[in-house]
Design a protein around this nucleic acid. Structure first.
Lengths: 220, 220
DNA sequence: TGTACATCAGTGAACGCGCGTTCACTGATGTAC
DNA sequence: TGTACATCAGTGAACGCGCGTTCACTGATGTAC
């Protein structure tokens, strides 16, 4: 399980401090949002001088990029883990919610309103493709819908079949593409409103609504 | 149509400058997001000194509150206008999308990730209730679903019927409550992902997906 | 119509703050012979 | 095993910046007699 660590003590130490910085960064994001992330404040929490962090991250943007990468990676891992235990779409839906609730700001950093001037590092597209792939697999494993698509749906699915850049590597048919997108957008709508606090004061239990909505995806 | 303006010239002037400030505030939000809103920057654009704005707004928070209020008000007006032209749920869906696309940052200010330390003014809840009321009316006018609810849906609707604080003033039945929530969350999922740029690069046309999703609400 | 006064818009200087980032430097840790 | 050197972590001072906000003040606009 644990291989011998080929890294030098210095490398290990560097990695350790980087982790510590990122951990405090997450805490800061959790309380004040991503746009308020401050290197100086993190350094203070850690007990270091501000400039010391520049030994570990080139600048603020690199730190944020790293956090976004980690967040995507974490979701991809959660999806893979769930997929190995079975390809049920409902299970995947609840794995998604569990991941989102475990750290709301992490979810919002990835799927929420983007940080103003910032744009995500290009290697995240590979991880999002990975996530989509797990989702497409689960949708493909689902038994197809019994009800025939409406004319509107048929038109959409024909369109999706011709514009499948996002699922290029996947052999899914149009109905599967459609279902994957629906899964993503519907559940995101619920999660994003819940995590942003838009349901507070309304009285009902978001979990029930989520479960019901997930149910429409597994047997439409 | 236009009544005689009872305001003094000074009051008119004040209102005019307030409007100008808000307009530049929106432009600034559009380019850099709400958390980057700066009174000094607005003053500079307008050609005034920074402190001059304090004649018109008590502080930064009051300005943001005003913007949020205006955004809610604008959506409520758009909904009312649409509802007067007919109570079709699909039309309401497209009115929502048109309103969102007209000013993406306005939509995100209201329904996106909340500004960190900030909390909305309490009088917005009245406007959101208004918006919900139009939505509930449209859902109630819709002909009820032909398919009976699944056990999961039945359970949810019973729950909603018991926890209807958000629709207290409305005589809607549980199925209508359910449909209104579904309308809101599904369309928000699509809009929020589209406006945040999460569909860019995927290749398909968000409008088609939106129309298809709206279609599932009008005839489920 | 003219004068005396009050109200209000806007200015410029100033305060304290925290930010990201650079730079020269100290001291500890590792490496080569 | 000991010495000479290179590498690297971390510090403190400094730079320039823009922020929100307060304050004393000037000039213009309105109001009352």
């Amino acid at each position: 399980m644990s291989e011998p660590d080929a890294r030098t003590p210095r490398e290990r130490y560097r990695a350790q401090v980087r982790e510590e910085v990122k951990q405090h960064a997450w805490e800061q994001i959790a309380t004040a949002g991503a746009s308020a992330l401050s290197l100086n404040a993190i350094a203070k929490q850690i007990g270091m001088s501000g400039p010391a962090l520049y030994r570990y991250f080139a600048n603020r943007d690199e730190l944020i990029s790293e956090l976004i990468r980690d967040a995507y990676r974490s979701l991809a891992d959660a999806f893979h883990a769930r997929a190995e235990a079975g390809t049920d779409l409902g299970d995947l839906a609840h794995a998604l919610r569990a991941w989102a609730l475990a750290d709301p700001q992490r979810y919002l950093l990835v799927y929420g309103t983007p940080v103003p001037g910032y744009q995500a590092p290009e290697d995240t597209v590979r991880i999002t493709a990975e996530i989509m792939s797990v989702l497409l697999d689960a949708c493909a494993a689902q038994q197809p819908s019994a009800v025939p698509p409406s004319p509107l749906e048929a038109r959409l699915e024909a369109h999706l079949d011709e514009h499948r850049a996002w699922a290029a590597a996947h052999p899914a048919g149009p109905a599967v593409l459609h279902r994957a997108l629906t899964f993503w957008t519907r559940l995101h709508g619920l999660l994003s409103l819940e995590l942003s606090g838009h349901f507070t004061g309304m009285g009902f239990d978001p979990a029930l609504l989520y479960t019901a909505e997930a149910g429409t995806l597994t047997t439409p």
